[in-house]
Design a protein around this nucleic acid. Sequence first.
DNA 1: ATGCAACATTGATCTAGGTTAAATGTGACC
DNA 2: GGTCACATTTAACCTAGATCAATGTTGCAT
Lengths: 239, 239
Amino acid sequence: MHRIPTSNPVHRRHPQIRIQAFLANLPMFSEMRDAELDRIAAGTLPVHAEKGQAICQTGDPCTGFHVVVYGQVKLGFTSPQGVEKVVEIVRPGQSFGEALMFLDSPYIVFAQALADTMLLHVARHAVLDELARDPGFSRRMLSGLSRRLHGLVRDVEAYSLRSSHERVIGYLLAEVPADADGGPVEVHLSTGKSVIASRLNMTPEHFSRILHELGNDGTIEIRGRTVRIPDLGRLRGGG
Amino acid sequence: MHRIPTSNPVHRRHPQIRIQAFLANLPMFSEMRDAELDRIAAGTLPVHAEKGQAICQTGDPCTGFHVVVYGQVKLGFTSPQGVEKVVEIVRPGQSFGEALMFLDSPYIVFAQALADTMLLHVARHAVLDELARDPGFSRRMLSGLSRRLHGLVRDVEAYSLRSSHERVIGYLLAEVPADADGGPVEVHLSTGKSVIASRLNMTPEHFSRILHELGNDGTIEIRGRTVRIPDLGRLRGGG
DNA sequence: ATGCAACATTGATCTAGGTTAAATGTGACC
DNA sequence: GGTCACATTTAACCTAGATCAATGTTGCAT
């Protein structure tokens, strides 16, 4: 069990306009007028984290939420015995930590960069102030939290009602671009297999085995991190 | 696999004042002025469900959310193979279905009365209208959803990192009134053991076994649905 | 290129918890 | 009280997935 270094905010000034432009593309801040976006941006600070660096630890107080600009972040918790479980893999354009802003509890998950990552930290007070002014913003925030909640319920369903075999298939299918028709697709696993395994609530060994089972009955072809799916319908049907 | 009859709203008029008084006690509607509460109450309809009756089914569209007045409701999903998993047991004063109001998706869980139950159904439009007017209401709604999210994350942690033994202990401890000091306490299981077992992600058999293990090493004493805990500290320490 | 460290695969073995089945309680209603 | 339906318990057995232990791969820093 080794200590994870915690990242520090980059205090170097970034061009203000870039931050606003990025924020404006998030569902949460879409439809905001410039003045509103300016106020949010004033409470926003870029944060950089190297691969492996912690962005926040279990128990830390919540000072705002994070958005991933580039890179990748894993959220997870560690059992008293040191076992780790990945709850979510956060990709560019996605955010985490919003819910905590409305509670007075500290982080129950940790966040760690899976790659060289750039985030924006939006201060709690900036969000809270804006919520008080803009009902549209509240509405979008409620949508965001609801979507998150919905996703978690689906996870609970998967964990308790689906076999690991089914969870792997589900994961692969979720990685397939929406516009793919039945034909052959290639999906690229965005991170290491052990992280994905943990996300799917299984051991790396078991994940490997399932992938290779699917491999040698011809449902998928594995080349490193690239998985080719010759027939989507077949994978959907359970391999 | 038997069909579950769906409950119908009770159209008989209930005293308006009772509804408002009840709603006013919910965290979500606290601090509301009379005029606001009146508007919410105007969109609220009492619903009655017998023990075993479905309040809503997986796939139903969402027309609002429900609050339990008295009785008890279980939320859960059913696998294609007909296995059922209880996600939550909802008690008086608690509500469900809020998140769905902000999404356009149908119910992914079903809700079924565990006892003779009275609920209030608050129409989606009433909530949405009020959110647009009252930032304080938005704020409380955000708190509520955040708390729910937090709870679900804790569940995921329990399911993936704790043994069933630990989950049972956790459940019992959660049932102990907060004001209890270390001394002997009695907790009364609010519903059947199979439902609790499913809520804890285990079979009734396994739940029974664990309870009796704890029973014969003296950590707890079981008399039907009543569990006596002679030494809270000992239970907290893992039996 | 070379060598190291992290990651991935493979096989053997183990076990927590599930499944099946049967016996026993228990409570609601007549 | 009696009886029916259902909940709970008990016991024997089974299996999905974990753990342990090598071994192979890959990427990356020198």
